[in-house]
């Protein structure tokens, strides 16, 4: 009886969605209900962040599913140097070659770890892929075409920082247990060999659907926070620290974190702020944002233990900030 009721509710939901699908535009609810435009702005920005992320999350989920089903643990091991420190440099190169943005990289990295990739190597890929990325290079180059120092600094510093993050994570977590949440720990997949090809394809889709829900809930929460800040926090609040050599980069890093922009688009936002922020602050914005942002943090929480996620944020933050200050001291 209870199950019957529950099914009824879900059918009703499906019907309601379908009804809204057919007739929503004839209802013109936004006018009729007199909803404040600020709330609608919030909804629009929230949906835009979420919708924007969907295709890339799906791409990441598919790549990760394909790795899961078709790439064996041995293959991964074979391509990573066994020397833990020696593996860091190739990992940055790998991160730089693959055009994977911050939404897509999380499930992929988690899968690589399940396949036996070392934590610090995986983290190097996690922070480097979204920023050292051909598409991001092009958009940055375009936005700062007359100020190439920003382009070089973004790419160069990201490269150095990714390696430092690898070293730090190696130092901290060398002897610790796996920071993946228990259910995502190491897996044994001998059974995969027995599966038929159709079963493998089916598995890919099942995995993809399951991961969409695992990541989706965190993505939704992240998008809600980020759009809340966009709609209700006037940019002026952060912007008043503009040219301060110490506060400027720090404020821009916080700004990048909370805005949670796609790494492909952040160069344009950065360029629009370049009148008021010093060059090194802009570089801080462009380097830190793709490595760490609110949306990305929540996506990571889907797979990693909270403690590890916060440690990683701290590590990245306390590496990016001094590196930016050193860069600033050397350049200006």
């Amino acid at each position: 009886m209870k199950g019957f009721l529950r099914e009824g509710v879900i059918y009703a939901l499906l019907f309601l969605i379908f009804f809204a699908f057919l007739f929503a535009d004839t209802m013109a609810l936004d006018d009729r209900l007199n909803i404040p435009s600020r709330v609608l702005d919030f909804n629009t920005i929230f949906l835009s962040i979420f919708l924007e992320a969907i295709p890339f999350v799906l791409l990441g989920v598919f790549v990760s599913s394909i790795i899961q089903v078709f790439v064996s643990d041995q293959t991964i091991q074979k391509y990573i140097p066994s020397n833990p420190l020696g593996a860091i440099f190739p990992a940055v190169i790998a991160g730089a070659v693959f055009p994977i943005c911050e939404c897509a990289i999380v499930p992929i990295v988690r899968r690589l770890m399940q396949k036996g990739m070392k934590l610090h190597v995986a983290m190097v890929i996690l922070v480097s892929a979204p920023v050292l990325n051909p598409i991001v290079l092009l958009s940055t180059f375009y936005a700062f075409s007359s100020d190439l120092i920003v382009v070089y600094a973004r790419m160069g510093l990201a490269f150095i920082i990714a390696m430092l993050v690898g070293l730090a994570i190696y130092a901290i977590y060398r002897n610790k247990t796996n920071p993946l949440r228990e259910q995502f720990g190491a897996i044994t997949h001998e059974h995969q060999a027995n599966h038929s090809f159709t079963q493998k394809i089916k598995d890919i889709f099942y995995h993809a659907s399951d991961e969409f829900f695992t990541m989706g809930k965190f993505l939704l929460i992240g998008a809600a926070f980020a759009s809340f800040i966009q709609t209700f926090l006037a940019r002026e609040v952060l912007v008043q620290f503009g040219m301060d050599p110490f506060l400027g980069p720090a404020v821009m890093m916080a700004f990048a974190y909370f805005l949670s922009l796609c790494s492909e688009a952040d160069a344009f936002v950065g360029a629009s702020l370049s009148q008021i922020f010093s060059t090194s602050s802009i570089v801080a914005f462009l380097v830190y944002g793709p490595m760490m942002d609110l949306k990305n943090t929540l996506l990571m929480l889907a797979y990693f233990k909270a403690r590890f996620v916060f440690t990683l944020i701290a590590v990245v933050t306390f590496i990016v900030y001094p590196v930016i200050l050193i860069f600033q001291a050397l350049m200006f």
């Binding site: 309601l16 809204a20 435009s37 909804n43």
Partner: peptide, 13 residues
């Protein structure tokens, strides 16, 4: 978001 998307999609900033 499915509903707010369907109902309020025409809102422009």
């Amino acid at each position: 978001p499915i509903f707010t998307g369907l109902l309020f999609s025409s809102h422009a900033l």
